[in-house]
C-alpha cells in the first residue's frame, strides 16, 4: 500500500467518523416573557366564553430530543397580571371571590414527567399551583417551531389543559361563572 492509498483511507475513515450520529445534549431554554402567552377561557352564565390572559410568564424548559423523558418544563406567572379586557372584572377576578391575588401571588406549573406522543407532540404531567392549592394535571404539548433569533436558538411550544376551578378552592359564583377553565399556553424560549 503506497502513501497515497494510506492517505485516502485515513480521510475516508475520518469523514465516516465525523458523520456518525452524536447523542444530542439536552438543551435548556429560558422562557421569553414578551413572546410567551397564557390564555384562558371560561363560560359566562352558561352562555358565551370569556377570554382572559396572564402576562409575562417566566420559567424554563429543558428539551431532550433523544430522550424526551428527560425533558421538563417550569412556568410561573403573577396572578395579578390577569387581564380580561374589563378593569372592573379584572379587579373582581383578582379579589377574594376568585384568584385572591394578594394572597396567592404566583400561579406555577412544574412538570414531573414528559412523554412523547407523536412526531412533535408531548404530554407533560406535573403540579399546577393555583389559589394556594397544588394539583396534578396533564398538559398536551406541541412543538411549534425552532429558529435562530438574534444569534440564539429559540424554540416554541404550545400547551393546552383544562381544570375545574372548584378543585382549586375557587367555589364562588359557580352558578354564574363556569367551573371549567381551559388554558392555552404558548411558550417561546431562548437557549441558555
Amino acid at each position: 500500500m503506497n502513501a497515497r492509498a494510506i492517505k485516502a483511507l485515513f480521510i475516508i475513515s475520518l469523514s465516516a467518523f465525523l458523520t456518525l450520529p452524536v447523542a444530542a445534549k439536552p438543551e435548556t431554554f429560558k422562557v421569553d416573557p414578551v413572546h410567551s402567552m397564557i390564555f384562558f377561557k371560561i363560560q359566562h352564565a352558561g352562555v358565551g366564553y370569556t377570554y382572559g390572559m396572564f402576562f409575562n410568564p417566566e420559567g424554563q424548559f429543558v428539551v431532550d430530543q433523544e430522550t424526551p423523558e428527560n425533558s421538563s418544563v417550569t412556568v410561573q406567572v403573577k396572578a395579578d397580571s390577569v387581564n380580561t379586557g374589563n378593569t372592573n372584572r379584572d379587579n373582581h377576578v383578582k379579589g377574594p371571590d376568585f384568584l385572591n391575588a394578594r394572597q396567592f401571588r404566583v400561579i406555577s406549573f412544574k412538570s414531573t414527567s414528559v412523554t412523547k406522543t407523536g412526531e412533535k407532540t408531548y404530554e407533560a404531567k406535573g403540579q399546577l399551583s393555583l389559589h394556594g392549592v397544588e394539583k396534578d394535571i396533564v398538559v398536551a404539548l406541541e412543538e411549534t417551531g425552532r429558529a435562530e433569533i438574534r444569534g440564539k436558538t429559540a424554540m416554541g411550544y404550545e400547551g393546552k389543559f383544562r381544570i375545574k376551578r372548584s378543585d382549586f378552592g375557587m367555589t364562588n359564583m359557580l352558578a354564574g361563572v363556569g367551573d371549567d377553565i381551559t388554558f392555552q399556553v404558548s411558550l417561546e424560549g431562548a437557549i441558555q
Partner: peptide, 13 residues
C-alpha cells in the same frame, strides 16, 4: 358557605 377550612387554612381570610 365555604366548606370546613383545614387547620392552617390556605386562604388566610
Amino acid at each position: 358557605l365555604h366548606g370546613w377550612p383545614g387547620w392552617v387554612p390556605a386562604d388566610t381570610t
